[in-house]
Design a protein around this nucleic acid. Structure first.
Lengths: 217, 217
DNA sequence: CAACTCCAGTGAATAATTTCACGATATCAC
DNA sequence: GTGATATCGTGAAATTATTCACTGGAGTTG
């Protein structure tokens, strides 16, 4: 009898690695590569090969045992992790950062589409040159519901970030990428937030470097 | 007899949380707040209060037992994690993203200073308006060594990211924040890299949302 | 068609991290 | 000052994640 696949819970760090791996595979595929080994993936992701093998084994879709066919592996990951479900995103805050992020620069996978931008400054709505549709904040709920958008990006200044986050959640957004330099507190376990907290990154590096030097002694 | 404090190894996730917490405390302090409780911190960081208490307890600098004095907690964290050691950073790639990041926007803590910018396009060196000193790539080693910079930010396009990373490491950089949409593979355990991999963030959110819905059933 | 080599897959062991639970200490009210 | 309440600090337990170690399949060579 087959194992109850649906009950296997994948460790969160494994989900993060596999999600990243997916984008990596997209890039490699575009470069013309078709096959890859666990050791190679490991190097690129900065983890040992057995970690990669284990991560992939959580998906319970055993391959042939001799390297991975990139296109197949991509599909297995996307299928299992549900990447095909939520492809639309919106962005709030059409300032300079918002602009940079949504300019197709390789920043986001070609699987996703940021289809709507919001800002409460009418000037910005006019001056911004982009493929997306731009709207004033008042249209937030209407657009998100109409397009069934589940992912939101926050690139507004500090003082409005929290309000925007809660507005997005009220409109049905389930995942947020927050670039504002403010941590956003949410009380619901059905909404996920990824904070891109650049100021913190300096400290993290500083700490790791110091820890390394301390332990070296 | 006192415990051998120096031998206590802090879990990596705790280091990351404490590093983030530090920036948070800086912000709260600027807003005029002087005291904070573990439950409050927990909400802001999105983790339970006992995790925060445990994280802080790794520092072995017990407080009074009734909330934390923000200024004191800040000092304890900075001291223990060595934040005071490496305050200078440089950035390679003065394109639009590089500009946005280095514009004092609250993106980086006021503790750090991005003091030098590099680009191999002479036009960019002239046209960019900034407080930093700007240099051509040829000056990389000279400047990094002269200023004893240990942290580098990469905001160059995809195709040069890997080379830039290795150049930085050759110049003595020990910590890298990589914004390019390429994962950088390094083989040294004395160099730390933080990939801000936006394309991956979409997948991660997508996966968490799907996982949540799957487990809900 | 062996024999050999190279990898993936995975259950089990180990290690790392988080959570728990409770004693200790500060604060406040009266 | 005493009691009531709130909060921290931390060793130990529980949970979660990683690493190990071995099996078996696929490709390759002569």
């Amino acid at each position: 009898m087959k194992k109850d696949v649906d009950k296997v819970i994948i460790p969160k760090p494994a989900i993060v690695r596999l999600s990243t791996l997916y984008v990596l595979l997209e890039n490699l595929e575009q470069e013309g590569k078709t096959k890859i080994f666990s050791a190679e993936i490991g190097k690129l992701l900065g983890v040992p090969s057995h970690t990669i093998r284990k991560d992939i084994s959580f998906l319970r879709q055993a391959g042939t045992g001799n390297g991975y066919e990139i296109s197949i592996l991509k599909n297995i990951i996307a299928e299992y992790l549900g990447f095909n479900k939520y492809k639309k995103a919106c962005i709030v805050g059409m300032g300079r950062l918002g602009n940079v992020i949504t300019t197709k620069n390789g920043f986001y996978s070609n699987q996703y589409a940021v289809i709507a931008g919001f800002d409460n400054n009418p000037e910005k709505l006019k001056s911004t040159r982009t493929d997306m549709d731009l709207y004033p904040m008042a249209k937030l709920k209407e657009v998100i519901e109409r397009e069934n958008i589940k992912i939101g990006i926050i690139t507004v200044p500090q003082d409005s970030a929290r309000k925007v986050a809660h507005d997005l959640i009220d409109c049905g957004i389930k995942g947020i990428i927050n670039f504002s330099p403010v941590l956003i507190e949410i009380n619901r376990d059905d909404v996920f937030i990824r904070n891109i907290f650049i100021a913190g990154e300096f400290n993290i590096l500083s700490a790791f470097i110091s820890q390394y030097e301390k332990n070296k002694l």
